[in-house]
Write a protein that binds this DNA or RNA. Sequence first.
DNA 1: CGGTTTTGACCCGCGC
DNA 2: GCGCGGGTCAAAACCG
Length: 423
Amino acid sequence: MEDKGSTKKFMEDDEKPSYDDNNIDSQIKKTDGPSSSHNNTQGSTLLLSLSLNNTTQLPHQIQAKPQIQIGKLRVKLEEEKKENENLKAMLNVVNERCIVLQNRLLVAMHMHQISSSPQNNNNLPKGNGQDAEKSMLPTRQFFDEPSSSDCSKKEGFQNNENSMGRNFACENINEGEINKKIEDESSEVSCRRARVSIRARSDFSLMMDGCQWRKYGQKTAKGNPCPRAYYRCSMGTSCPVRKQVQRCFKDESVFITTYEGNHNHQLPQAAKPIANLISSALNTFFTNSSTSLQYGNNLSNTFLFSSPLSPPNSNAIATFSPSPTCPIITLDFTLPPSNFLQFKNHKQSSSLFPFPLQGYPQSFEGFPNMINNERKLALVDVVSEAIAKDPSLKATLFAAMSSFTNGSDPLNINNLSQPSKSD
DNA sequence: CGGTTTTGACCCGCGC
DNA sequence: GCGCGGGTCAAAACCG
């Protein structure tokens, strides 16, 4: 009886994976790394054979065979589970990195557009460079902290030159290392005391962001009769994360939620999309901050931001308000999707790109049948091709990106610096 | 009864 | 130094 019971439990464990199988499988299929697909195939085959063996042998043969057999199978199962967890964690990192890179690219393209525009060149500080340098000194001091600039240096992943970080050498990475990297980045972000403010409609999933919050104050702020509520995360014992929620005065269906700090505890699955969104926003803007600031106030710090959330909330207008004490990144999800294509700082382009990509699809709409992640990957491909085709763009991009990554971009942006090889 | 919300008091940074 | 405003504290009230 004991054997039956343990076997039944064993099979139940097989049938109830701790993660979304469909999701992970579909995502793993998108990674073209040979090792990952190989491992996954191997894992599926093994799990299948384990189930079949159990089915065909039950209950008679199990009783006859020594328990060692079951023990071995369990060990194998545990190994496969570990590997699955490993792949899952890697996948999360890859997805997050992809989003960050995509947003950086958009920012860099924005820079390219502005720097190549004669009108804006006139607005840039010229002549006495010391004056310009002096004027932005306080902000740069804030952003040039070692913790922020070193962020990218800790990345240990290696990527394929053509895939912009989609192929990872996964054999040498274990889950612990991945988690450590994520935690390192989280702590770096939190020490900057930056805030991410999200403007969203009341039906937005943000209202139920997966965390437990305890209200600790309410105040009516000046200029907005709607009271502002202060919440503290109550999931961890002393979690430093706080959020403020306030209705928009002009449109009461819009909620402005401001997050500050990083959770010091494990997040529930439901809280991860918002956490990833905030993390992406912080990474995108902080790793680009030094370049942004070189343009001072002459540059509009408003960009399209591609968020890790599912459609229809997958894009936002992001606004960065640099401040030495408390920089704020505002993500505006209140615009309907159709308005994103109309949003432009640039007269000549109505696409998501701030400048025309000759001979390439002008927006994500060029990939109508793709799901969001595929569109993002396709965007990376399109941009890669555009970079390969236009040496001047390549050089400009590299100059912009290397200036804020100090040549140590986690996604190996250095690859862009070698036009001679690809040419 | 323990956790959460409410609300007035208090603290602190900033501008004048 | 003073006033203002944003943010936090903490005691009382509330709730399941």
